[in-house]
Design a binder for these strands. Sequence first.
RNA 1: GGUCCAGUGGUGUAGCGGUUAACAUGUCGGUCUGUCACACCGAAGAUCGCGGGUUCAAUCCCCGUCUGGACCGCCA
Length: 582
Amino acid sequence: MKRTHNNGELRSSDINKTVTLKGWVAKKRDLGGLVFIDLRDKEGITQLAFNPDSPLYKKTLEIKNEYVLEVTGNVIERSSKNKKIPTGEIEVEVKELEILNTAALTPMIIADETDALEETRLKYRYLDLRRPVMQNNFVVRHKTAQAVREYLNNDNFLEFETPILTKSTPEGARDYLVPSRINGGEFYALPQSPQIFKQLLMISGFEKYYQIAKCFRDEDLRADRQPEFTQIDIETSFMDQEEILNISEGMIKHVMKSVKGIELKEDFPRITYAYAMDKYGVDKPDTRFEMLLTNITDIASQSSFGVFTSNIENGGIVKAINVKNAASDFSRKKIDKLTDFVKKYRAKGLPFLKFVNNEFAGSILKFFTPELLVSLKEALNVEENDLILFGSDKTEVVNQSLGQLRNHIAKTLELYSNDDYDFVWVVDWPMFEFREEQQRYYSLHHPFTRVKDEDLELLNEAPEKALAYCYDLVVQGQELGGGSVRIHKTDLQNKVFDILGISKEEQQEKFGFLLDALKYGTPPHAGIAFGLDRLVMLLVHTENIRDVVAFPKTNSAQCVMTSAPSKVADEQLEELSIKTLI
RNA sequence: GGUCCAGUGGUGUAGCGGUUAACAUGUCGGUCUGUCACACCGAAGAUCGCGGGUUCAAUCCCCGUCUGGACCGCCA
């Protein structure tokens, strides 16, 4: 028999209808003859009722949780209604009952409020995914992808597929390698992103490309990082930064509207990378709350606090954040905890001052003259019961530690809501950073990013000062996407490779095909990529990427359900001309 | 590569240098005609992750190891 309805749709208007339902037994309640079964499917739960005099009563005795049933019966009004669920007005008085399948005792409760540990959930992922919350996550994921396609299709973008078996390139993340059987001793790499292919498609003249692309990076995992993840990948010809930002903003707004019903009317604000680093300490600022970093190096240099003065003499800086009206919330013990927190980010300590009873208090107070305290009060806009936390170190350490501390404190004090979508563009990124340890330049974005026209000369003099046509979309302190205008001329691309210290030979070996292609009338082009997983995380309010990936990997990059990765037969290795060291 | 947290009936937790290893839930049996976290009565269910050490005695303390999680480094 076919289903006539799903388990989420029957209402009192359906009373007296004869219906056929299918689904899983979410819960059985036997009151001693009178039996209720909550039948669950993708759409919801409908209560089935069996009277004690029903000929089916006997059959209900063998039914257990997660059995799969097909029932036919009449929709009747409940004598006691349940306002908690949409179908709570009615129930189905069952006339025919077929057990489509039995179910073993499940290792976890199939309900939103499961008490199972993540390890158990991952091992029995197919059961975990039966839970309505998880089902909803993947409905949202689907809707998001569809909204993206809808928006881009309407704007004449073409959806492409690019190779999964591709070429290993230097720079960037570690590659996942795939051995070639036919070409023994040689390897494909899985793409970290379809970057070069989408640029080549622009050279081919397709003008507007997009792909919902799987990407692979062999790096350590985090709560928001999986070795394989999905990007909404976009590239266009003849567009400048402004046009890319507009298209992207339109797309995100379309997603918010069609998935969440939220209309974002305002333009997304834009801040520069330099401003983000200065005021938030991080390149992905959470702009839902203030508590900005304030540079007080000048004031600190006049104090007699050796930690500050010697640091400043060594070229370091001093910044502070003002935690408004929180002095009384932070005991010595709690501040010690904050100190431990910043130590993770290589800060050596966390000096503080409290402003209570209209005066400063704290162990470092004695190093400040009354005049300096006035300056401090002004610079940090200090009011009654404020807590001032200081960072004193090299610029990078101060920014990172105070920036992370800012987020951490805001979280503990609940200074924000997850329903506050504070999209912000971070623009004007530097082309390169110079890493002392390796003594060489690294691309901040990637080696195909175009330098700002006005900074072209800086590439010769001081590459680290050159800014790029480069942009990130940030929301709630998370990087949601990023992109750049690309280099479309061979000489500039050569120059950037040179600055990165890639030899001419390696340029030719690794990127020869791109350098070649650039010669044949490459149009100016620009693009962007968004993390689909992170976008869905944002929409379903989870901090765990595994909640939005159907079959994710654990921290150690394993799948506890399938036990991948695993050993293979020696013959397989031999065929691939491979020997393992272990 | 490193730091921290966790691992105890099916599931989730408590516990303590000597316990009959506790609680909740689930499971099984029984009672029950309006439940919806049904209720009530009863029962079964544990190699306390694994290996070693300290001790008269270790689930508990120590070392190692494995697994999961959070983080630093890493992630153009």
